[in-house]
């Protein structure tokens, strides 16, 4: 009798080992963990003090850094203008755009956060390497649908586009970038992004009223 139980236990363990061997976690699973970490950091009372904002921002950035494929996001935002960038310039652009997106969006999150909750609605596998995870952000201003487009790259699922209320981040920046690159050289785009980051820094460091 006890023997049967032992065998059953090990068979169960065997199957558990099998599932833990899954080397590519599903897209929604990959998304949930960083998002709930970020929500926790946003709610964490230890960051309420004025000087702690930078720490909080850095912590959030560290948490989501691997979730987003910034290289893909930058390249997609360039669209056909990618060919006008040398590899050096492209690397500079990826770095500055990553910093831009990180700083600007996280700063906004910090200033606007009011106990929002995230609801996970669905996970659509478009191909075995592409998926859309649909979520909804519940806020007092009204709910907002946010869809994350993810791809499987190097065994890990990462986000390459975010669509909020139907507006795709990548497409929106692509429209803006193409307007700039139509008239100006690639360096100008990098400069503009750099300038925008500095403006933001100046604003957030300004003494609060």
């Amino acid at each position: 009798m006890a023997l049967r139980k032992i065998i059953q236990f090990f068979i169960l363990l065997f199957f558990c080992a099998f599932t833990s061997m899954g080397y590519s976690r599903q897209p929604m699973e990959t998304l949930k963990q960083p998002i709930s970490s970020v929500l926790m950091i946003l709610k964490d009372p230890q960051y309420k003090a004025a000087g702690k904002k930078k720490m909080q921002r850095d912590k959030i950035f560290e948490t989501v850094r691997n979730l987003f494929d910034f290289s893909a996001i930058t390249k997609l935002s360039l669209g056909k203008y990618r060919k006008s960038f040398t590899p050096e310039q492209l690397k500079d652009l990826i770095d500055v755009f990553t910093e831009f997106l990180g700083k600007i969006y996280i700063n906004k999150m910090l200033s606007e956060f009011k106990d929002e909750e995230v609801v996970y609605i669905a996970e659509d596998m478009l191909t075995e390497k592409k998926a859309i995870v649909k979520t909804s952000i519940l806020r007092e201003k009204g709910n907002m649908t946010v869809n994350y487009r993810m791809h499987l790259h190097g065994g890990i699922w990462s986000v390459y586009d975010v669509r909020a209320e139907g507006v795709s981040l990548v497409r929106n920046y692509r429209t803006q970038f193409s307007q700039i690159l139509f008239k100006e050289k690639p360096e100008k785009l990098i400069e503009k992004l750099q300038k925008k980051i500095e403006e933001q820094e100046a604003e957030s460091n300004a003494p609060q009223p």
Binding site: T175, Q176, I180
Partner: peptide, 15 residues
């Protein structure tokens, strides 16, 4: 969050 707000608004409206 926009680098060219006019273009960004136009595109966001259409999308």
């Amino acid at each position: 969050t926009a680098i060219s707000p006019y273009e960004a608004l136009k595109d966001a409206y259409i999308q």
